[in-house]
């Protein structure tokens, strides 16, 4: 197996998150599960019918239109970038990450290394993972073990964000 450009991990960065669920009968421009869309100053990741996770930005919706629940403390965002990013993730991710199957812009909530992760692929060689905060350290261990043979680099967390 040839060794491509090493993947780089930016570990444990916090990002403002809100889970948005439309009330019944209310039509919101939320992306369908598996898709993403720019909304309300951030990127909405479609998780289920009428349910999306808004990354960044702030949704301005009254309760009779949607349930908006803050989730900033609940997740840490990890980035896995580089030509070998999909190969690294394949050590624990059960989805088909081939570029034609999980196209740029795709979203999936799935089990990766025994952890339920929200996976988003902004470009062909970049993946963003929203990992439950209490499981983040175990997950970083999985990522660094999987990335090691590729020469992967885990950047340390910024102080005070944990």
């Amino acid at each position: 197996m040839s060794v491509p450009e090493p993947p780089v991990l930016v570990a444990e960065d916090r990002v403002v998150l809100h889970q948005v669920a439309a009330r019944r009968g209310v039509a919101l421009p939320l992306p369908a599960p598996g898709a993403s869309a720019a909304l309300w100053g951030g990127i909405a990741l479609g998780l289920a019918p009428g349910v999306a996770m808004l990354v960044g930005g702030r949704p301005d919706l009254p309760p009779d239109q949607a349930a908006v629940v803050e989730q900033t403390g609940g997740f840490l965002r990890m980035r896995v970038a580089g030509l070998a990013a999909a190969e690294v993730l394949a050590r624990g991710c059960r989805l088909d990450l081939d570029e034609a199957a999980f196209t740029p812009g795709s979203v999936a909530r799935a089990l990766i290394a025994q952890v339920t992760v929200i996976l988003y692929r902004p470009t062909a060689t970049r993946f963003e993972l929203l990992v439950p905060a209490t499981l983040a350290r175990s997950f970083v261990h999985f990522l660094s073990t999987a990335a090691a043979p590729f020469g992967g680099v885990v950047l340390p967390a910024e102080r005070g964000t944990r």
Partner: peptide
């Protein structure tokens, strides 16, 4: 695979674990 020893199952840590 790699899920051995302490890593057999993921650990959930409290926010103030450290």
């Amino acid at each position: 695979g790699a899920d051995v020893g302490l890593h057999f199952k993921p650990e959930r840590l409290l926010p103030l674990h450290d």
